[in-house]
Design a binder for these strands. Structure first.
Ligand SMILES: NC(=O)c1ccc[n+]([C@@H]2O[C@H](COP(=O)([O-])OP(=O)(O)OC[C@H]3O[C@@H](n4cnc5c(N)ncnc54)[C@H](O)[C@@H]3O)[C@@H](O)[C@H]2O)c1
Ligand SMILES: NC(=O)c1ccc[n+]([C@@H]2O[C@H](COP(=O)([O-])OP(=O)(O)OC[C@H]3O[C@@H](n4cnc5c(N)ncnc54)[C@H](O)[C@@H]3O)[C@@H](O)[C@H]2O)c1
Lengths: 208, 208
DNA sequence: TTAGTGCTGTTATTAATTTCACAACACCTA
DNA sequence: TAGGTGTTGTGAAATTAATAACAGCACTAA
């Protein structure tokens, strides 16, 4: 089984390969890509070992080939269909950011209880009323949701999503969701992240 | 030295204590708070040990007291002054979300190169022109920055921030910043997070 | 061809983090 | 008082993650 951390780093390696390697570079050494990603060369080689990719000594890794290998591993055969639930400030920012990006992550719908938001097209995808949630998720075969609703309703909305068949949730509400273990949850609590940064920033200040 | 993970969990414990514990509850057992946070009781006890807090057997932890202990540990003596750089969709969402929250994290300024954004008050804090960055950061004694600028400029903006004296950065641009090691960086790459969720969601789908 | 160089893949080692397990303690009840 | 129950704090064990180390290969140059 492959780890959490490894998957996240693979995603980053691919992004670097696609965005930060110029077209004429056809191969790269582990220390080069590792340094772009701020990880150790050993770590990078180990991550690639996990997906069964091999470079060649003296030659390194073929950029095109490696990019595709990571893609095959991360993306699977068909695009992942994604919904964003809660089209407030954050939800809209995420939709507009992700729309028309990576073709294998498709934002196909969004949901909101607020009638001034639902029924419109926001950031390139249709925003539906929350009542339609189960229907649309099943019909559109959506497997992943981004949850950006106010925290008091996050748990109950998550349960509706899971009942409707969602298999993974990227949760921005600062509540640790309680879900059955087959559902994968990734929590992104902004306040906790900022408090962490503030704590360590103060540590370095005080060390002076 | 206290770990990364522990600090993040402490922040979460505090949030739960403040928001999810009703006023008449005066004490809690480790298994109760642990279950709210979805961690093991042993983990919780160990985290509290790290900050030198002690409960009492049979009684558990005093809610008020524990909340304050975590606060003393995380917050330090004075509020942390924070700036948001790049007032696009995401920057504005974060500012409006954080303004008027936790009093020890103060958003005191924001910055943008776009003249239609700078010079105004956005989400309760003044948005300055990017030219003023160094001046304001020094004058306002800002130690932490949230970075929400387009990724091609993220590295150069980060360097300006560090020159101006910033000690910690919460980075939303999907580039791994290269910075001197005294500066604490927390990367929040939305795409990588979503790809990770999509990957594990697919795993559970295929396991069926 | 042969020796040399510099890389990869993988095993071994070390480090970090989490969980286990249990003595010691507080409190309740009789 | 004494015995029972249920919790904490923490050393030890287990697990997980990261780093180091190195054999072996590919290529170069003489
Ligand atoms: N804005 C940020 O930067 C930010 C940062 C961190 C965390 N968050 C969290 O993300 C969540 C949303 O933040 P926001 O700033 O976008 O808030 P917001 O109030 O702007 O948006 C919330 C949206 O959810 C909708 N909504 C409410 N109940 C709903 C339901 N039951 N089903 C579907 N939609 C529902 C509302 O109509 C609204 O449009 C909150 O939990 C917040 O704590 C936001
Ligand atoms: N919107 C999202 O949900 C989201 C999610 C993940 C990551 N991101 C990342 O966050 C960043 C911002 O995203 P966004 O959607 O808010 O984009 P955006 O284009 O809406 O906002 C970017 C803002 O930065 C400003 N800017 C440009 N150059 C600047 C400079 N040198 N100094 C200061 N300000 C500058 C622009 O004027 C603009 O207001 C991007 O790197 C993006 O990849 C956004």
């Amino acid at each position: 089984m492959i780890s959490d951390k490894t998957v996240e780093r693979l995603s980053q390696y691919r992004w670097l390969l696609e965005m930060h390697v110029d077209a004429q570079t056809i191969n790269l050494f582990s220390h080069q890509l590792a340094s772009m990603a701020s990880v150790s060369p050993a770590q990078l080689r180990r991550d690639l070992m996990a997906i069964g990719y091999s470079g060649s000594p003296g030659k390194g890794y073929m950029v095109r080939d490696l990019t595709e290998s990571i893609g095959r591993f991360l993306d699977g055969s068909k695009p992942t269909r994604v919904a964003v639930v809660g089209m407030g400030n954050l939800g809209r920012a995420i939709v507009s950011f992700l729309s028309g990006r990576r073709s294998h992550l498709k934002i196909v719908a969004s949901f909101d209880t607020d009638v001034t938001k639902s029924g419109r097209v926001i950031g390139g995808s249709h925003c539906y009323s929350q009542d339609k949630l189960e229907e649309i998720i099943k019909r559109e075969n959506i497997s992943v949701a981004v949850l950006t609703v106010p925290s008091p309703v996050a748990q109950s909305v998550a349960e509706k999503l899971i009942d409707a068949g969602i298999k993974g949730i990227l949760n921005y509400a600062p509540v640790p969701l309680k879900v059955p273990e087959q559902v994968y949850i990734e929590n992104r609590d902004v306040t906790a992240a900022l408090e962490k940064v503030a704590y360590f920033a103060r540590q370095t200040e005080e060390r002076e």
